[in-house]
Design a protein around this nucleic acid. Structure first.
Length: 790
DNA sequence: TAACCTAATAGTCAA
DNA sequence: TGTTGACTATTAGGTTAG
């Protein structure tokens, strides 16, 4: 029978010694189905030396066959390796684990140059070979499998033919369950072998909202709550389970906690299959997709502190001022105090609603990323930018008959990057910012840059010579990177074309918009990927060539601008700031003609201000908005008050030119600070712990604070943001830094915040106008009133 | 011993 | 677990004036 279905996930199991691919899907009629494909076998390639005796090597390989996973075939074939045609032997066995052993043995055979594609997970191998990424509709011939037990699905089938992709963009109705747990934490940090779960909050795509709570006791008893929750999950049977930071916390905690109270946390679609750690730091539930929204939040640089409430507010889901918030370390108190317990329940409910709504925001993009990269929806979020692109490249390679290079350990070699021009300091009126569109990907295409096109220089007209570095690339035929990038651009263009057929805001429009965005993100990651030592297609000379061409292009563009009488104020990598005169249009045309690259006006400043520093400027845009770049005001590691002061100073100076007013404003803030009128929250400084605590060589404030927090029983680890406030006292700044939630207004070191936060932030801009630090701090003399310095 | 200098460490942002 | 360039604060350890 022929069925149509939406593919959710691909996994595999071994059934009586033979691998079975499991295709988890939603059928057109909404049944949850599982399709088994028992015909697929693991394999790898041996690349043969030129002129090697194939027969001889085939026989030698066959002789290696042993045990319960014999070598079932050795086939001679042709592939390309870095663009060059090669003879390969495709060595097929039975069990995926056997690939590694055979690889080592085959590598040693004389006449075998290398062994490739032995390091690809079996289920991903299936997706690559059959071109069947998840999050797409397919049609396939299947046969019902009767009497198969052990799977919690409506029907199990056996695949007869191949999967045929369908051109349907809209996903089916997917059942989603969001969860959020609260743990009893009287000791600060929590431990599943000791601390019970007090609330499990659940929200589903069918609008159900439920709280499972622990029973009374000291400590509270959570066995029944966990059991009820498990039953709820099995009964609701979600396709997707969503959490916030659930890879690192909720899911592992639930599993361990359940086991501690004597329950098997069996909530998957295979019986007895409990959630377990998987690739890319992801925690997987058999047969369901577990999506951690935190992974997506992490990619938004605008959000500095990534707590759920802040992220939800950023996306306009729920304002922090309009929801219940409870400090994490006080959760147990809210539980113990019955009068405050309803607040805690409200808090958990708000969290799970935010989690669910954030998931709805991210889902369309995640779906597109999954169908492009082939990574299942639950892994695609956890995978880094480099791995996402790599899976796209691997899919492309298979389609092109290119062998996938091995992942190898390499030594890191630095190379020169982009140029940044010395800014002309001061205020400039009416400035246009011109940007080359997708400069690096376009350079890679234009100069056919890649490992497979790299040639010795001195090849004349047949190759491109890269200026400044001794690298050359042949012009024809197009290399791997060029082919892939051109495909990405072509696909994106066609998606954008198709978007025009739909009403903005319609489901189809949103889907296509997310797809074009995913395509752009993949293309833009290509240069960084090529320069990443961990990449399969790593090529330092290529990355070096790309930046070299970039530098040359900017140099030439400056020349063109100056010839046309346009003053260049500043430039960074692929942008130029020039006076916004009619000649700008001529400049754009000339750049296109001479450099054959597109350049566009990105923004226009009515007024823009530079100090002598690079990568820092502030301007007023055409619509009157203040745009701050690079300065403290847009950094996450400065106190809110310093950022606010700097932004307002910039605003006053740019809008009115009234420096005196700006000075008065700063003095007033300093006065308010001294009078304890600035709330402590505005004084918190957040910094990331970028390594584990014992790796630090100096005791920076956030490091000492992290140590203090740990000794108080909190859990602080690598990757966490630590918020601290500097208090009065003796000694170094570090020794006077305290966790922000422990600081009373009276303890704040007002002097530190004046001298090291507010004044430096304000001076960054005011210095240029001849203001001295003394002018700003003169108020500090013995707490006089406002009138004493006016 | 306080004041001052400098290299190294660390974090974050621009592109 | 995508790249290099750039800026800045703080620590840690020294030197120097007095």
């Amino acid at each position: 029978m022929l069925i149509r279905f939406y593919l959710l996930d691909v996994s595999y199991e071994i059934h009586s010694g033979i691998p079975a691919i499991l295709l988890w899907a939603i059928a057109e009629d909404h049944r949850r189905i599982l399709i088994l494909d028992r015909s697929f076998r693991p394999y790898f390639y041996a690349i043969l030396e030129e002129g090697a005796n194939e027969r001889d090597i085939v026989n030698k390989i066959k002789l290696l066959s042993r045990g319960d996973s014999p070598i079932v075939s050795v086939e001679v074939g042709s592939r390309k390796y870095y663009g060059k045609p090669v003879k390969v032997l495709k060595v097929t066995t039975v069990k995926p684990e056997a690939v590694r052993e055979y690889r080592e043995a085959v590598k040693k055979i004389k006449g075998v140059v290398d062994v490739v594609e032995a390091d690809i997970r079996f289920s991903m191998r299936y997706i690559l070979d059959n071109d069947t990424p998840p999050c797409q509709w397919y049609e396939a011939e299947v046969e019902p499998l009767e009497g198969v037990s052990g799977y919690r699905v409506n029907s199990v089938y056996s695949l007869v033919g191949k999967l045929k992709p369908l051109k349907i963009y809209t996903p089916p109705k997917i059942k989603t369950l969001a969860l959020d747990i609260e743990v009893y934490n009287p000791r600060g940090s929590v431990d599943p072998t000791r601390d019970p779960i007090i609330i499990i909050a659940v929200a589903t795509s069918d609008g159900d909202l439920k709280l499972f709570t622990a029973s009374e006791g000291s400590p509270p008893q959570d066995r029944e709550a966990i059991k009820e929750f498990m039953n709820y999950v099995l009964n609701y049977d979600p396709d997707i389970v969503v959490g916030y930071n659930s890879n690192r916390f909720d899911l592992p905690y639930l599993v361990e906690r359940a086991s501690k109270v004597g329950l098997l946390f069996d909530i998957g679609r295979t019986r007895g299959g409990i959630p377990r750690p998987s690739v890319h730091g992801h925690y997987s539930i058999p047969g369901r997709l577990h999506v951690d929204i935190y992974d997506f939040a992490e990619e938004i640089p605008e959000i500095k502190v990534k707590s759920l409430d802040v992220v939800a507010e950023y996306f306009g889901i729920v304002k922090r001022s309009e929801r219940t918030l409870i400090p994490g370390h006080e959760i147990f108190r809210y539980w113990d105090d019955k009068s405050r317990r309803p607040k805690l329940l409200e808090y958990a409910r708000d969290d799970v609603i935010s989690t669910f709504k954030l998931f709805e925001k991210f889902l369309p993009f995640a779906i597109q990323l999954s169908s492009l990269t082939g990574l299942p929806l639950d892994q695609v979020g956890a995978a880094s930018v480099g791995y996402r692109l790599e899976w796209y490249l691997m899919r492309s390679a298979v389609k092109m008959g290119e062998l996938i290079p091995n992942r190898v350990e390499r030594e890191y070699e630095p190379y020169k990057g982009a140029v940044v021009l010395e800014p002309r300091k001061g205020i400039h009126e009416n400035i246009a910012v011109l940007d080359f569109t997708s400069m690096y990907p376009n350079i890679m295409i234009k100069f056919n840059i890649g490992p497979d096109t790299y040639v010795n220089c001195g090849c004349g007209d047949s190759c491109y010579e890269i200026p400044g570095v001794n690298h050359c690339f042949r012009k024809e035929p197009p290399g791997f990177y060029k082919s892939v990038l051109e495909t990405l651009i072509k696909l994106r263009r066609s998606v954008r074309e198709e978007m025009k057929r739909y009403e903005p805001g319609s489901p189809e429009y949103v889907i296509l918009d997310e797809r074009q965005r995913a395509l752009k993100i993949l293309a833009n990651a290509s240069y960084g990927y090529m320069g990443w030592v961990g990449a399969r297609w790593y090529f330092r000379q290529g990355a070096e060539a790309v930046t070299a061409v970039g530098r040359e292009i900017i140099r030439k563009a400056i020349e063109i601008a100056e010839t046309l009488g346009l003053e260049v104020i500043y430039g960074d990598t692929d942008s130029l700031f020039v006076s916004n005169k009619p000649e700008v249009n001529k400049f754009i045309d000339e750049v296109m003609k001479v450099l054959e690259l597109e350049i566009k006006v990105d923004k226009i400043y009515r007024r823009v201000f530079f100090t002598e520093a690079k990568k820092r400027y502030v301007g007023i845009l055409e619509d009157g908005r203040i745009d701050i770049v690079g300065f403290e005001a847009v950094r996450g590691d400065w106190s809110e008050i310093a950022k606010e002061v700097q932004e307002n100073v910039a605003k006053i100076v740019l809008e009115t030119g009234d420096v005196k007013r700006a000075v008065d404003y700063v003095r007033n803030v300093i006065l308010e600070l001294k009078n304890q009128r600035i709330p402590v929250e505005k004084l918190v400084i957040w910094k990331t712990l970028t390594k584990s605590l014992d790796e630090y060589e100096v005791s920076a404030p956030h490091v000492t604070v992290a140590r203090k927090m740990i000794s108080l029983g909190f859990k602080v680890e690598k990757g966490d943001k630590v918020g601290y406030v500097i208090v009065r006292g003796e000694g170094s700044i570090s020794s006077r830094a305290l966790p922000y939630f422990m600081v009373k207004p009276s303890e704040v070191d007002v002097d530190y915040y004046t001298k090291h936060q507010i004044i430096p932030a304000a001076m960054r801009i005011l210095e240029y106008f001849g203001v001295s630090e003394k002018q700003l701090e003169s108020v500090s003399r013995a707490g006089k009133t406002l009138f004493d310095f006016r």
